[in-house]
Every structure is written in C-alpha cells, then in structure tokens.
Design a protein around this nucleic acid. Structure first.
Lengths: 238, 238
DNA sequence: ACCTGAACACCGTTCAAGT
DNA sequence: ACCTGAACACCGTTCAAGT
C-alpha cells in the first residue's frame, strides 16, 4: 500500500476522535519547515505525519502555494510591534520595530526565504504598515516623502533579514570553505589587498564571505549598525 | 514516446553538428527563467528546448541546484562596477554601485529570488567585495567598523532589491486588489488613519500594499531615497 | 566525450467514492 | 463536512548502453 498513512500502532482501527483542523495542518507544516527546511515540505510527507491521506491535508490547507502562504502568515503574526505612547520617539520605535521583525524571522529562519514572496498586500500586515507610517509621519515625512521613507524602512529591515537568512548553499557546491581559502590566497595580492588585510575579521562574518547562513551564524552586530544607519539616514532626509 | 526530444522538422535525422556546451545549457535555462519564471524551469523542459534528452543537459549542467547556481553567476557577472580613480568620492562610488547592482538584477527579475540563496562565498564576487571594502576603508572604516559597514551596505543594496523583486503572489491567493480595497475601506478608520489618509499615494506603490512585483512596477524613486539614506547613515557612523 | 533510453522513486492535483 | 483510494501528468536523478 504505497501512499497510505503510516498506520502506526498495529492494525487497530485508526480513527481521529477530533477532525483535522486547518490550524493543525499549518502548524505541522511549520514544524516540518523548521526542522527540515522548506524544500523538504511535501504534501505527502505532511499527510504522513498527520496520519491522513494527502488529499485530506489539501482539503484543509488548500493548494501547496496557499499552505506556504498560511505558514508565512503565522510567522508574520508573531512580530511583536513595540508599543506607541504619546512620548515615543520615532527613532526609538523604528529601531525596536526592526529588532522585533528580525526576532520573529530568526525564530523560524527556514521560513524567511518564503516570506520574501509573501511581502504582498494583506490586511494582516495593516498594523505594521500603519505603525511605520504613523511614526514616520510624526517625524515629519509627508506625501511622497512619506511613501519613500516607508519603502526605505520596510525594504531595509526585511531585505536585510532576507539576505542574512538566505538558504545555505547546501551540497550544490561543496567545499566552499576550501575554495574560499585557496581562492583568497591564490588571488593576486594586488587585486584584493583590502580583503586580504582584513581576512580574519571577514571570514564567515560577512556577506559573500561566509559559508553559514544567519541561522547558525547570525550577523547581529552588523544588523545593529545597519539599523542605526537607517535611522540616521532617515534623519538626514528631514 | 514520452520523454523524447521534440523532433521538430519531420523525421530527418536530427543530429547536432556541434556538441552541446555548458554555456549553451545555462543560456537556455536563463532564457526559460526570464520568460516563464524560475518555478517553470525544468530539466525536462530545458531538454526539450535543446532537442536532447534530459540526461544530456545534466551531463553538461550538473544537478538542477548547480544549474541554478550557474545561472545566478551569469547574472551576477553582469554587474558593471563603477570605475575607481584616485579622486573618486566614496559616497558617489557606493551610490553608483547600488544602481549598478539593481540594474543587473532588473535585467533578469525572475532570477533575483534565486540569487538570495546564492549570496555565498565565491571567487567570482571578489571584485565587488574588494571594491566595497576598499572604498569604505578609504572613507575611514577600520577593522570591526569596516566589517559592519560592509555588511550594512551589501545587505541593504541586495536585500532591498530582493524585497522589490520578490515573486508575485501568483494565483495562490487571487483578488488581492479587491481584498485590499475592501480591507482598507472596511478597517475601522481609527485603526489605520495614516494608511487611509495616504491611500492614493501608497496603493500599489509601497511594500505590502502592492500587487505587482518590481518587474512590472519598479519602486525606483524609493530606491534612490534608500541609497541616499544608506550613504548619509554611513557618514554618521564615521 | 557525449548522448540515448529506460527505469526509479518521488511529486501536486483531480476526481469519484465513501461515511 | 471530512476523508479514502486510485489515477494522472508530471518531476529530478541513476544507471546501463550506445557511438
């Protein structure tokens, strides 16, 4: 029996006392993504884990694309927006928001690559949108300037995290580490002098010079600097 | 005959006079991605277009993961780094570099989502890495500060473009536009006042409030602002 | 070296049928 | 409403064989 459920304990009548729910399906999908990566999430594997047939998960979760979107929603909802009081400084709020976004993505690093496709319109994102907009407006941004400041902020915060949490190269090309070292050492010194002079500080600590993703090797210091750069840069726009 | 090559013109002996090359395979893959999107690139479709059997493309292009990496390399190589003379200002160079990166990604918008996974170590990226490092060093960044300024810059420029060029939602959830309008209009006015007040300027022009990707609907103005914000923010770090 | 041809172990999805 | 069961049209990859 090929696609049948695992049928764990003997041949006892395997029957759910409670019907499968949409939330249960999404949670199981998220669990698989967290442990095995998004590329290993399969309707059929999901069905196996839930002890049902593949078509049953599709009944609750919809198509695979819809299911992935639902998983992203759950992660997105976990973003804990900083509170806004009457004497909140806009710079402090933006900084706290950036950290909150990164925290939420870091909690499910394998979801981040999917979320970039999901940064589209959805009522679910209205609290974040309204928060950023109102804070930037209170800073003095209006009309076109408000739109540009908003896009700068969102693109910066989310984009940076996407870059940090990109999938690891996998086995597609193995031997990065060796290739890196020999590549650097064999490159003519006069072609990459700055790279060579700072190779210890850069190795596995910088974009394009690391072989671990942000999950196992977070670039926290640089993110803190990046957020400060964003805020100071926005200040200069006023 | 299921998986056979298309055998286009009649039954004339279909024989390549020149053997298939690795470059030819990669170019064809890029062409398919450009027109149909990365999710529609298939070894078998690629084989069909090249008039060979699937295993032949694998012989030249390697596994699918390796093939995608090769496609990304081609696009990455198209980045035209701005020249550096002795009197180049670091701010001008960073700005020109950012535009060059975006131009290269915009030329193949469907590749951008793949490139985020490919922002890993590779000798091919050394010119860009060395360029950014040397320019930031000339600005006055040293050691840890240099690493952080570098990561801020790369994460900002590439990350922002990744966010801008994210895949369109597809048919996963259709009716974005309607959902958006009704969603906004039905949301209590006191919950999203700033969003409502600026809805005309924001609609389809801002992250999370657009239903078209960067390919068909570029956010160029905001990117220019974002780059200026980056540069001014970096200045403040010195 | 370069490619065919068949086979293997998977996919997501549809559709009819059960209860 | 919720799930089974079989089938369909695909995948990427391996492996043996041809030339």
């Amino acid at each position: 029996v090929r696609g049948a459920p695992k049928s764990g304990r003997a041949a006892t009548a395997r029957k759910r006392e409670v019907p499968l729910s949409r939330a249960e399906v999404i949670a199981a999908a998220l669990a698989i993504i967290d442990t095995d990566g998004a590329e290993n999430l399969t309707i059929r594997r999901l069905a196996d884990r839930l002890d049902v047939y593949p078509t049953a998960v599709q009944w609750h979760g919809g198509s695979k694309a819809q299911l992935l979107a639902s998983v992203c929603e759950v992660v997105f909802q976990d973003i804990e927006l900083p509170p806004m009081t009457s004497r909140t400084q806009w710079t402090a709020w933006i900084g706290a928001m950036a950290l909150a976004v990164r925290d939420a993505l870091m909690a499910h690093p394998n979801v981040a690559p999917l979320l970039s496709d999901q940064l589209q319109v959805s009522p679910m994102s209205f609290p974040l949108v309204e928060g950023v907009l109102s804070v930037l407006e209170s800073a003095g941004f209006r009309d076109e300037n408000l739109v540009n400041a908003y896009n700068t902020t969102i693109g910066f915060v989310f984009g940076w995290c996407f870059a940090e949490l990109a999938r690891e190269p996998g086995d597609a090309t193995t031997g990065w580490q060796d290739e890196f070292k020999t590549g650097i050492l064999h490159a003519p010194a006069d072609e990459v002098p700055t790279l060579r002079a700072n190779v210890d500080a850069l190795t596995n600590q910088a974009f394009m010079l690391r072989w671990q993703g942000g999950r196992d090797n977070p670039l926290t210091d640089s993110f803190v600097v990046a957020v400060r750069v964003l805020i100071n840069g926005l200040k200069a726009e006023l």
